[in-house]
Design a protein around this nucleic acid. Structure first.
Lengths: 302, 302
DNA sequence: CTATGTATTTATTGTGCGAAAAAAACATTA
DNA sequence: TAATGTTTTTTTCGCACAATAAATACATAG
């Protein structure tokens, strides 16, 4: 994990809001309300604003606060803040190495500490995360064990079967709440990608957008357990997807499916929506597993 | 958490096996195989064996190892090891205090450290657990927030709705594997409690036995995601159950339901079993929620 | 009187060392 | 030669203190 203070993260997030059009050039960046919004104190927000000012995204007038500069959306002003969340994360390296059989099944913290030259807190944090995702376990005494889930090709199918059990069911929850704002937001996002961004965007980003859509929809069920289960399983799925062959063409089908789902939800017909969701998932499964098989066979052949 | 070394835990676990009839009086306690079994080294196993010998549960012959003494099952030989896992656990205290509105929604680690006079590692560990169960969150800056899930009466119903989505589905997994040993074991346990132990056992124990049954059955599905989701949701449910009124009569219905389910699984009819599971859960829900309502009303009346 | 700017306090992380627990290596006995 | 007993090594925990980050309190300007 690259050193990153809360102020840095906030700078990114605020810039994200500007890029996404939620905050317009010329608008005042009220420190207090931003702090409340992000549930932090003004201190890190102020740091973020200073960073943004230094990058030319905001201008500062003494005793009058910060304002989004008119050039904020020009070309690559402050682009160094845009994406560089560097994915050299220990988490990914560890997952990669485990799947690739580079590390033994049983390891000690010490071993990981040395192998990755990482800080202890980072190693422990990563292991805890892996435990949550179900691919690592603490041994009763010293040491940790990695479980084979992530490395098996069946995992893909199992995830999809699990999702098929919960996602359509979630739409039928009596507490389902039909939040127009969420639907609008998601429709906007999916549409934007369908209008072209699919061809240029990084695979990883597209995967995340797709997962986010499902998570947001399931969240409307009003039953946290469905939502939490999906989020958890999606984190693992993310790892699996990163290792599989990525098919952009499939994303078109997927995202237009999402728009159709929104349409059905708007119609106020949860049963039909639930049914459609089931289909939508089934499609993904069949295509996915054949891709996965091809992938595995290629590997064996080599 | 009361100081407890791995050796102490093993002593309990081994005694559990003796009490449960898995290891008989007179049998040799092979250190190596016990160590392998528990996935630890011989060191803590040896400590456990010493403890057991000191309590009169095992006898020790120099250079010949340990043997379960014939009096191991007599009366209260070594009973001090049986149950006393003291539930003064920070985890329970914290959950209790949060539900009872004794602590604020937002807290710092420091606050918890002082309030509970606990070690830092313990506090952090507990918070991580709470996060996994979905009733706590790290704030972006310093501090943690507790979420209302555990304290809402709706949580009960939501958990049951979630389980109704996953448990019957799990039984229909194509990878479902019908492990006679597991079924036998569970049948034995459920039968034993139906034969009388229900009236004497602690509520907490009965709750755990019931949860364990479901977890074991779902595990047979061969799809970890179902199993993991259930385990996770059950941990939270445990908290909820501890706070609700306990009805022993209900346990009879519940446990005989379990036996019926085993019978259907033995018949090799997963569809019927799945259907029965759905019903079984529905029953529990309806009874449960009415109890829960009564409970809430009582509280309000006071 | 509200938002900004600044100073102060508080919370948390990082580090290093000694203690305790567990694993691994070695020696010995049936 | 496999299991037991014993010693050595390794791993992890616990604690204190310094360093940093964030929250809070205070002062001031519009």
């Amino acid at each position: 994990m690259v050193e990153q203070t809360l102020g840095d993260k906030l700078a990114r997030d605020i810039l994200g809001r500007i890029r996404g059009g939620q905050i317009l050039p010329g608008a005042k960046l009220n420190a207090k309300s931003l702090a409340d919004d992000f549930r932090v104190s003004r201190t890190p927000v102020l740091e973020a604003l200073k960073t943004l000012a230094a990058r030319g995204i905001a201008t500062h007038a003494p005793n009058r606060g910060y304002i989004v500069s008119s050039t904020a959306l020009n070309g690559n002003v402050g682009s160094e803040l845009d994406e560089p969340v560097p994915v050299t994360d220990l988490y990914y390296r560890l997952a990669e190495d485990w799947v690739g059989q580079e590390i033994p099944q049983d390891v000690t913290e010490q071993y990981l500490l040395q192998r990755y030259k990482a800080r202890k807190s980072e190693v422990v944090g990563t292991l805890v995360r892996a435990v949550n995702e179900g691919w690592a376990e603490r041994k009763p005494g010293y040491g940790w064990t990695f479980l084979p889930v992530v490395s098996t090709p069946e995992a893909f199918e199992q995830v999809y079967r699990f999702r098929s059990a919960i996602e359509p069911a979630a739409l039928l929850e009596p507490t389902f709440e039909f939040d127009t704002q969420v639907l609008d937001e998601q429709e906007r996002i999916q549409q934007r990608y369908l209008d072209g961004a699919i061809d240029t965007e990084l695979p990883d980003r597209l995967i995340l957008i797709g997962m986010q859509f499902h998570e947001e929809i399931i969240r409307l069920s009003g039953n946290t357990f469905f939502h939490q289960a999906l989020v958890r399983v999606n984190r693992l799925r993310h790892l699996l997807e990163l290792r599989s062959i990525f098919d952009r063409a499939r994303v078109y089908d997927q995202f237009s499916g999402h728009l159709e789902l929104i349409r059905l939800l708007r119609k106020g017909d949860p049963i039909e929506a639930s049914f459609y969701m089931r289909q939508h998932l089934a499609e993904a499964t069949s295509k996915k597993t054949s891709i996965q098989r091809a992938h595995v066979q290629n590997k064996i052949r080599r």
